[in-house]
Computed example of a mutant assay.
Amino acid sequence: MSEEAWWVYRGTGMPHEGIRELPPAPPWRRFAGTSGSEAAHLLPPPEPDDGSSARRLGRTRQAAAYQANEKEIELVNLALHLRRPLLITGKPGVGKSTLAYAVAHELRLGPVLRWSITSRSSLGDGLYAYDAIGRLQDAGIHNGGVRVGSLGPGRRRAAPGIGQYLRLGPLGTALLPWRHPRVLLIDEIDKSNFDLPSDLLNVFEEGEFEVPELARMGPGGQRVMTADPHGTATVTGGVVRCAAFPFVVLTSNAEREFPTPFLRRCVSLKMEPPNEERLAAMVAAHLDDTDQEGQVRVLNGHAQEIIAEFLRRQRDDGAELANDQLLNALLMAGRGLWDGERGRQLVRESLLRPLNQQ
């Protein structure tokens, strides 16, 4: 695969500073996130190094091992150049979400901001949450009529600031004025209610939104919490306004159709099931089964045999199988279940049972 000169994301899995080579946004996709002391100077936080990141360790390995094909690389770069969301459609388990992590890892764009969609998700959930009741309760505790002698006669202790009760969601955090675009994963957008795709359009077009609770407090800056662990940011004048449009990845299992205005504002990618090479790389990332050169080792002598059967069932039998099923089968094979005929039958009938068969 030859690397094209216009590629920023190269699909190598090796981190680099290629995001600095991204040309300026087209005039119709430039945003005005230049007000306030932190404007265009926010840097993404490092990956958290605590117990909460144990699962993300696997995500990092997946991202490094992910082998994007040429079509995927091209469409990722189109979305980066055009500052448009990337809508990825494909069957469950083909690697749609992993591509977002691969881009963030290679371009050093910080932790992925993930918004998992349900049928009850609304635009507000992605933008911010305000705990008004908690603030009122704390204000009552502080100003409940009890005089504090150290504050002087008749004086009451000041209530906590609003920033302790307002947290930006994944979308709201992505729209802060970062120096380079953050990666926002809006996962399984096809599960949303009918209105959410259309509701997203205005935010995607304007690159900003207002927080009324902060706007009412005047033109000054307010420190609020963000979707990053322990993250905070200053919002000036009650408006969150991006400087660089985030790299937005929307995934869909193709369970519904989207409005035409939504589709024409996205770069669309249909992701096909992975081949044997990509599956082996995924297995290595998940099961930590690589040698010093990063090549997948044969798991208990049977990994390649199971991968080949997995692919044959998909290709020849039309079976719907998810990568999670393959991982479960390989894990149990590594624990001896593939050594006997009874164990092999159990793997085939239970762990590799096609999803389209009842």
Rank of each mutant, 00 (worst) to 15 (best):
S2L: 08
E4A: 14
I19E: 04
A25Y: 02
A25C: 10
W28C: 09
F31V: 03
G33D: 05
G33F: 05
S35V: 09
G36R: 06
E38N: 07
P44Q: 05
P45F: 00
D50G: 12
S53F: 11
L57S: 12
R61I: 04
R61W: 09
Q62K: 14
Y66S: 07
Q67A: 13
E74T: 07
V76Y: 03
V76A: 07
L78K: 03
R83Y: 04
L86D: 05
I88T: 06
G93Y: 07
V94C: 14
K96M: 10
S97T: 15
S97L: 11
T98S: 15
A100M: 03
Y101F: 13
V103T: 01
A104L: 00
E106S: 08
R108M: 10
R108Y: 00
G110Q: 02
V112W: 03
S116C: 01
T118M: 11
R120W: 05
R120M: 13
S122V: 03
S122Y: 00
G124Y: 01
D125F: 03
D125R: 01
Y128L: 08
D131Y: 02
A139W: 02
I141G: 00
N143H: 10
G145R: 09
V146D: 05
S150G: 00
G152K: 00
R155T: 01
R156T: 08
A158Y: 00
G161Q: 10
P170M: 04
A174K: 02
H180D: 10
P181L: 05
P181H: 06
R182E: 02
I186S: 02
E188L: 09
L196H: 02
P197F: 09
L200F: 03
L201S: 09
L201C: 11
F204M: 15
F209D: 01
E213S: 11
E213R: 07
R216Q: 14
G221M: 08
R223D: 05
M225N: 12
T232M: 11
A233C: 09
V240R: 06
R241Y: 03
R241T: 10
C242Q: 12
C242F: 03
A243P: 01
P246W: 03
T251G: 10
N253L: 12
R256H: 05
T260E: 15
T260W: 07
F262T: 06
R265Q: 13
K270L: 03
M271Q: 13
E272V: 08
P273Q: 11
P274Y: 06
N275S: 11
E277S: 14
V283I: 15
A284L: 10
G294I: 05
R297P: 08
V298W: 04
N300P: 01
G301P: 10
Q304M: 13
I307C: 07
I307F: 04
A308R: 15
Q314G: 13
G318L: 09
A319C: 13
E320F: 09
L321M: 11
L321H: 11
L321E: 06
Q325K: 10
A329W: 07
L330H: 11
G340N: 15
G343M: 11
G343C: 12
R344H: 05
Q345G: 09
V347G: 05
